[in-house]
Design a protein around this nucleic acid. Structure first.
Length: 477
RNA sequence: CGGGGCGUAGCGCAGCCCGGCAAGCGCGUCUGCUUUGGGAGCAGAAGGUCGGAGGUUCAAAUCCUCUCGCCCCGACCA
């Protein structure tokens, strides 16, 4: 028997680690701060990749790959960028047994080296826009580790684009944030709040940063994707220029945007319960697991015959696994696949064979409530519809959960209460001092200034000066 | 880097304070029989440089010194 999972109410972060390790998504590596993504976890990430990659291609982007090593001098070319990243760089000083003439940074992000290449590839307005994405691993020397959320090495995609005008670049920045929002809602079943980052939360070197913010099961916020508008900062640092229609040299306007394996952490924490993972059908490595039940060889034969019919009926459209292992009891298997978050389970035993039916069990509705009988006859439609239903229900459930735990404080005391219990949508003057004060008092930070604004919003909850926008305050990962 | 904790079988731990019989327990693994509709039962078996080095002692998992590694809490962060 497996160890029990720590209940979420007892210790949320223990629960998180328990689930990841017991569901075999990932494990700690022998290197401090690093993790091993196991096949089940990687398969989930591959589905995330597929959902994003498809959207990138649909919006005109191409994939490419840039070097892992970046000359130190590149990183130092943009002043804010160095400031931001230097403390967390891993630097290679020796190679082939000799000290390197110039140290090489292991990429923490690729703006600089891609900027360098863009300066050579872009000559004319006819070369624009450049719309490139890369799937890669990056390294940031983090001091604290949490599986999938914060590790020294992590996997992500980083899009880097160059445009002829500010407007185009800005459009691109927002378009990609939109792509992320759409992916989060429709594939990951996580409702997110898209918005602009405050000055203090901005990416080093960006003119403006945007993010999507999701609420986890413990009501803390997780930044699940970011998109940055660089203006001409990197173009000037890396001399990315083009000749316009009038023969005049112009600097490009650039953007970058990224989603990391952190998204896997978001999926775990947004949906999971005390039994383990609950995966949205669109991303689940296994969408349907079939558990056959028998006592005798004759029964086994009959049951497996029905299993084959189900398998054939469902065809390639569904990611299905038949768990016909002999060494585990049905009850054990039920628990195992619930831990692993498989959205739908089909149980087939001798009684079902007799009645030409199967038992369906929804992962998102534990116990008897989620169980139903379905005739074998139109099993394919039933399953497809049910998977879609589960996908929709997860999004609805999460949206309700988030809304229930989102507050609109209008004074400082209620703000303090609000961030204890979830998100606070509060009017804010935009001042860094007010942000600082809230952080010092409550550990909550501004997550983003949502695009969705109420209009006339009143006075800053911190200082009482007139506020033009509401911001989300929350404790974040 | 500051504060705390832990290294004993594949995994989780007890034993350490107060040195001494053969280093134990649970899970897992292997074999056999009975089982199988919500984490099966019984019987038997395999599995250990007690993180590493040095020291004290007749005797060290246990005491002392050094060392390596990991985890948790803070500051930094996708």
């Amino acid at each position: 028997m497996r160890e029990k999972i720590t209940p979420r109410s007892q210790d949320y972060s223990e629960w998180y680690t328990d689930v990841i390790r017991q569901a075999q998504l990932a494990d700690y590596a022998p290197v401090r701060g690093c993790m091993v993504i196991r096949p089940y976890g990687f398969s989930l990430w591959e589905n995330v990749k597929e959902g994003l990659d498809r959207r990138f291609k649909e919006t005109g982007h191409e994939n490419a790959c840039f070097p892992l090593f970046i000359p130190m001098s590149f990183i130092e070319k943009e002043s804010e960028h160095v400031e931001g990243f230097k403390p967390e760089l891993a630097v290679v000083t020796h190679g082939g047994g000799k000290k390197l003439e110039e140290p090489l940074a292991v990429r923490p992000t690729s703006e600089t080296i891609i900027g360098h290449m863009y300066s050579q590839w872009i000559q004319s307005y006819r070369d624009l826009p450049v719309l490139i994405n890369q799937w890669a691993n990056v390294v940031r020397w983090e001091l604290r580790t949490r599986l999938f959320l914060r590790t020294m090495e992590f996997f992500w995609q980083e899009g880097h684009t160059a445009h002829a005008t500010s407007e185009e670049a800005h459009e691109e920045t927002l378009r990609m944030l939109d792509v992320y929002t759409d992916f989060a809602a429709n594939d990951a079943a996580i409702p997110v709040i898209p918005g602009r980052k405050s000055e203090s939360e901005k990416f080093p070197g960006a003119e403006a940063s945007y993010s999507i913010e999701a609420m986890m099961g413990d009501k803390r916020a997780l930044q699940s994707g970011t998109s940055h508008y660089f203006g001409q900062n990197f173009a000037k640092a890396f001399d990315i220029q083009y000749q316009d229609e009038n023969g005049v040299q112009q600097f490009c306007w650039t953007t970058s945007w990224g989603v990391s394996t952190r998204m896997v952490g978001a999926i775990i924490m947004a949906h999971g319960d005390d039994q383990g993972l609950i995966l949205p059908p669109r991303l689940a490595p296994i969408q349907v697991v079939v558990v056959p039940i028998w006592k005798t060889d004759i029964e086994k034969c009959e049951v497996m015959g029905t299993v084959d019919r189900v398998k054939t009926a469902l065809g390639d459209g569904v990611r299905l696994k038949v768990d016909d292992r002999d060494e585990y009891s049905p009850g054990w298997k039920f628990n195992e696949w619930e831990l692993k978050g498989v959205p739908l389970r089909i149980e087939i035993g001798p009684r079902d064979v007799q009645n030409a039916q199967v038992v369906l069990a929804r992962r998102d509705q534990p116990g008897r409530e989620g169980k139903s009988f379905a005739p074998l006859a139109d099993i394919s439609d039933t399953v497809t519809n049910l998977l879609n239903q589960i996908q929709r229900d997860l999004l609805v459930r999460n949206t309700e959960f988030r809304n229930e735990h989102t507050y609109e404080p209008r004074d400082y005391d209620s703000l303090r209460d609000a961030v204890d219990q979830g998100f606070a949508r509060a009017p804010w003057c935009g001042g860094g001092a007010c942000e600082e004060k809230v952080k010092a008092d409550t550990k909550a930070t501004t997550r983003c200034i949502p695009f969705d604004q109420p209009g006339n919003c009143g006075k800053c909850v911190v200082c009482g000066n007139p506020a033009e926008e509401v911001v989300i305050f929350a404790r974040a990962y």
